[in-house]
C-alpha cells in the first residue's frame, strides 16, 4: 500500500520545519479525489510512522478537496465529493475536471513541547 511511502515523505518534509525540542501538534494535508490516495490508509500509516519522531503526538487532518467540474455542454460548474461522469446540471457525460490531483501539506502547528495536555 503506497500510503506508507506517502506518509514517509510527509513526515520527512514536516520534520524539516521543526526546530530541536519542538513538537508537532497538528498537520493539515489536502488530498484530491483523483489522487489515488485513501485518507483512511494515510491515517493508519501515520499513526504507525509518527512514533519516535517529533510528530508522535500530532493529529493528522486530511481534507478531501471537492472535485471542481465544468460541463462542456451546458457550461455549468459544480463541486462534487467524488468522480462522476455525468453533469449534475444537464446529465451529459461531458465533464471537464478542473482539479483533483492534490496531495499537499497545507500547514503545521508546532509548539515548544511545554504545557501540552496529553
Amino acid at each position: 500500500m503506497h500510503e506508507s511511502s506517502i506518509v514517509d515523505s510527509l513526515l520527512s518534509s514536516v520534520l524539516e520545519y521543526v526546530k530541536p525540542g519542538e513538537r508537532v501538534r497538528r498537520i493539515d494535508v489536502r488530498v484530491g479525489v483523483l489522487s489515488g490516495v485513501s485518507p483512511g490508509a494515510m491515517q493508519f500509516c501515520f499513526e504507525i510512522l509518527r512514533e519516535g519522531t517529533a510528530a508522535a503526538e500530532a493529529e493528522l487532518h486530511i481534507s478531501m478537496e471537492p472535485l471542481h467540474v465544468r460541463c462542456e455542454t451546458c457550461g455549468g460548474t459544480s463541486d462534487l465529493p467524488e468522480i462522476e461522469l455525468e453533469c449534475p446540471v444537464c446529465g451529459k457525460p461531458s465533464l471537464e475536471y478542473m482539479n483533483g490531483d492534490e496531495l499537499e501539506i497545507v500547514s503545521l502547528e508546532v509548539d515548544d513541547g511545554i504545557g501540552h495536555h496529553h
Binding site: S13, R25, L103, I105, S107
Partner: peptide, 16 residues
C-alpha cells in the same frame, strides 16, 4: 506556545 507554519507544498516534492 504554539505557532502555525504555512507550508503549501506537495507531499511528493522530493520524488518530483
Amino acid at each position: 506556545m504554539g505557532s502555525v507554519i504555512t507550508i503549501e507544498q506537495k507531499i511528493l516534492k522530493k520524488n518530483n
